[in-house]
């Protein structure tokens, strides 16, 4: 347990250093004089003169050796001093905190919805392997897995927003706005979790302890609840951990497609406008969120499966 948390903490530090190193490189490769750019960020574009730039240069040691500048950059990052956006001048930390809320709402909604769709269908298919539902589900989930998330989003927009005009195609605010982006992510997640739940159900239902549960007189329903559900839950939750990559990557694309104000959308815009402090802030938030979610999955597994607690 402690070992696990230490490992995740180490990963979090690695994320920070890796993101910091890449954005430092990005900053150094930007054309023009960094001192002017930072001064403009601080005082506004109309208030910059060479004196202000020189003051910034002296204060931040911008002419100093690369290593000391890099150390200062990483130091700022580790103390969460993320600076101001080069485009809007807003403090990065505030913007990222705001965007993080939007992303988390989207991601949590998608995971919950996928839990309703995926495992439920998978369990029903797994209780009758080879049945109509089982074969249909295999076909559909294989097809959905072969569709990249942005294409899935585009297809949903074309069907529900453009053709049938039932839902808004993009934006944020009402519940209706959240349906399509959440559904895009949830369908992708369910395509996998339904298969995992199906395979686990087949395994559990054909096991000796399951048959014994029936033999000792439990009803089909109670043997499923008492002996089946928890054993099916373990691989489903474990796979959720594997799928977190899919979720985080999906957030980047889906938020951009649906103009959803989250960190994925923020990151893509920052990269497009070469707004380095925003790139750093959003990438950092996204990387740390990934590590945090992985930690939650570890903890959930710990709760569901007591057999792992010794490990």
């Amino acid at each position: 347990m402690t070992r696990l948390l230490t490992f995740r903490l180490m990963q979090a530090v690695m994320v920070a250093v890796l993101v910091g190193a890449l954005t430092f490189l990005l900053m150094s490769l930007l054309p023009g004089d960094a001192a002017y750019r930072i001064a403009a960020g601080r005082y506004g574009y109309d208030m910059v003169n060479s004196a202000a730039a020189d003051a910034v240069r002296a204060e931040l040691n911008l002419d100093g050796p690369v290593l000391s500048r890099f150390a200062a950059w990483i130091g700022d990052l580790l103390t969460l001093d993320l600076g101001h956006s080069l485009v809007s001048g807003e403090p990065v930390l505030a913007v990222v905190a705001h965007e993080l809320g939007g992303s988390i709402r989207l991601a949590v909604g998608a995971v919950l919805l996928s839990f309703i769709i995926g495992p439920a269908l998978g369990i029903m298919a797994g209780l009758r392997p080879g049945g109509l539902l089982d074969r249909g589900l295999l076909l559909v989930s294989t097809a959905i897995r072969a569709i990249p998330h942005f294409v899935l989003g585009v297809l949903l927009v074309l069907v529900f927003a453009v053709t049938w005009r039932l839902l808004p195609s993009a934006g944020y605010g009402t519940f209706a706005h959240s349906i399509l982006p959440t559904l895009t992510l949830a369908l992708g997640l369910s395509a996998v979790s339904s298969r995992v739940a199906r395979d686990a159900t087949v395994g559990v239902a054909s096991s000796a302890f399951y048959a014994f549960g029936r033999l000792k007189g439990l009803s089909g329903f109670s043997v499923f609840v008492r002996h089946g559900l928890r054993n099916i839950g373990v691989p489903v939750v474990t796979y959720l951990g594997v799928q977190l990559v899919y979720l985080i990557e999906g957030v980047v694309v889906v938020e951009t497609l649906f103009a959803w104000p989250g960190i994925g959308h923020g990151l893509v815009h920052a990269v497009f406008h070469r707004d380095v402090p925003m790139v750093q802030g959003t990438a950092l938030a996204m990387g740390l969120l990934f590590v945090l979610l992985n930690t939650f999955v570890d903890l959930a597994n710990h709760l569901i499966d007591p057999r792992r607690r010794d490990a």
Partner: peptide, 21 residues
């Protein structure tokens, strides 16, 4: 490898592409 796995792949690609657009 643990260091690379700490970041989602697409995020790493996006950051590198941002450095060399």
């Amino acid at each position: 490898t643990e260091m690379f796995l700490a970041l989602p792949g697409l995020l790493l690609v996006l950051l590198i592409v941002a450095v060399f657009p």
